[in-house]
Amino acid sequence: MSPTVSPGELDERAGVDPVARGLWHPLVAVHDLRRGQQGSAVLLGVRLDYTMAGDGSVSVCRSDDHDDRRPVQIAYEIVWTCLDEPATPLFETPEALETDRRIVHAGTIGVHVSAPRAVENFLDMAHFPYVHTDILGAEPFTEVEEYSVHVDPDTNEVWATDCVFWQPVAATTSTEGQMTDYRYRVPHPYCVVLYKTTPVDPDRFDVIALFCRPIAPDRIEAHMFLALLDADNSDADIRRFQLTIFGQDKPILENQFPKELPLDPRVETPIRADKVAIAYRRWLSDLGITHGVIPAA
């Protein structure tokens, strides 16, 4: 079962962003591959074929030119590839390699939204009580307290730190409501990693990531990757929790207008709680990303 797009949904505006073409992108979850079978998926408007050989190795090439083989690496339970030669290595997340964590790919879901809109929604705490009612938030605890934002000068990643939010059910391991500490990291224009307090260990953080494959400027496939401190719950229960959250976000994402993220700061009016979104939009502008955004004039 390889998620696909109908030919009519391919968008000619896709595939022309040189910055996006030089990035590693998530193509397909490893658990969706079968040895000896071929699948296909669209990345930035370009259809790619992928094959897992009998020995488990994976290859990727353009569907319209099988001699044009694309680079491949496996990370975060996902096959990653790049349309051009990779300009930068894929970001690393050391926690994903810790052996005592539960590593779960929670699912791949198609969403009719741009990748930057999906990333920005993931960065937003203000919607928790209203969209994830009685799970990630609850009225009247709706205030987003002051937090810090910076771009790491060494890695050029956007960070939001010192975020706190009261959550009734922060994770599958929760037994009661808690003040949850959050740190957000944007290491890639279409990928976002969240570090949040785990109910089981005060000194470590659960890692929850959203990796988007940009299909068209207004269409993605979202991969949800988890590296959790949770010895008790089944994969099915962990996925249920994560897909519940994502399923609640989906209609909100799909009803945003315009679908593409406007980078001109005058187009949408931010509030104080949107500090990280403002930094993210400015960072996208500085990177020169054009796919999935409406560039500032």
Binding site: M1, A29, H31, D32, H105, A106, G107, T108, S234, D235, A236, D237, R239, R240, L243
Partner: peptide, 10 residues
Amino acid sequence: RTVDFHPARE
């Protein structure tokens, strides 16, 4: 009883 329909096709 959660059945892991997607992605595990349980």
